[in-house]
């Protein structure tokens, strides 16, 4: 195998120039970082090189964010292949066992108990988020929202931890602004932009996290 022998420019670039993308991303060793910084200081064209690499990263990131994500059906198919029982819900396994032991007579009581559990999960999330100062995960009454918003009603998979929910919402730059309503439903807000719309779509498609999703006025 040859190494890029037919390149459009046969000039051998400086090692520091080669490392610019990693300098921009921050995934660079301290030694290499010093090498690049020294090159940036000595090279008059360096700032333009750096700006180009930085722009490339920003554009690549923005473009990749629009590439979507696997569908809920795909996730269900994976879980069905791994363990047929988990196709419904891994986290609900204990509920299945409980259900199996209930006669129809007690089923209604079981539903009520499950409803209370969902409410309890909601209460815990609400309690914890009300003390959170992070900008991306807030409850109703936190008057930090600016600009027009689009909203959605969401219920989370029982058993999913607060950390997982927080991480997913942070990644998508979404906020909980209200809830839980009966049934463990939360109101999620996103900026009224294409990016916000895409973020809500991503959340909607996240089968490992979301059991119910509906756009809201």
């Amino acid at each position: 195998m040859t190494d890029e022998v037919n390149d459009i420019d046969s000039r051998i670039p400086d090692e520091a120039e080669l490392l610019l993308p990693w300098y921009v991303s921050g995934r660079i060793s301290p030694d290499d970082k010093r090498k690049v910084e020294s090159w940036l200081t000595e090279n008059p064209d360096a700032s333009a090189h750096l700006a180009r690499a930085s722009e490339e990263m920003d554009l690549t990131f923005a473009d990749a964010e629009a590439l979507g994500q696997p569908t809920r059906q795909s996730f269900d198919a994976l879980m069905a292949r791994i363990e047929p029982k988990t196709a419904k819900s891994v986290a609900s396994g204990w509920i299945d066992r409980l259900w199996a032991g209930l006669s129809p007579r007690y089923a209604l009581a079981g539903i009520a108990a499950l409803f209370l559990l969902v409410l309890a999960q909601g209460a815990i999330i609400g309690l914890l988020t009300s003390s959170s100062s992070g900008p991306a995960f807030q409850v109703a009454g936190a008057e930090t929202a600016v600009g027009p918003q689009q909203k959605a009603l969401v219920a989370f998979v029982p058993g999913v931890s607060l950390a997982e929910i927080t991480s997913a919402l942070d990644d998508l730059r979404l906020r909980i602004i209200d809830g839980p309503a009966p049934g463990g439903i939360y109101t999620i807000a996103a900026p009224d932009t294409d990016a916000g719309k895409a973020a809500l779509a991503s959340l909607s498609a996240n089968a490992a996290l979301v059991t119910f999703f509906s756009e809201s006025d």
């Binding site: 590439l67 994500q69 696997p70 791994i82 058993g159 490992a208 996290l209």
Partner: peptide
């Protein structure tokens, strides 16, 4: 399998986007 679900939640989107880039095919990426 619950652990696999968590691992999937953490990594599926990034992997999918990498694979879409690599293959140019969303169904194949999935």
């Amino acid at each position: 399998s619950g652990a696999l679900r968590i691992l999937y939640t953490r990594h599926n989107v990034r992997l999918y986007r990498f694979l879409v880039r690599l293959t140019g095919n969303e169904a194949l990426a999935e």
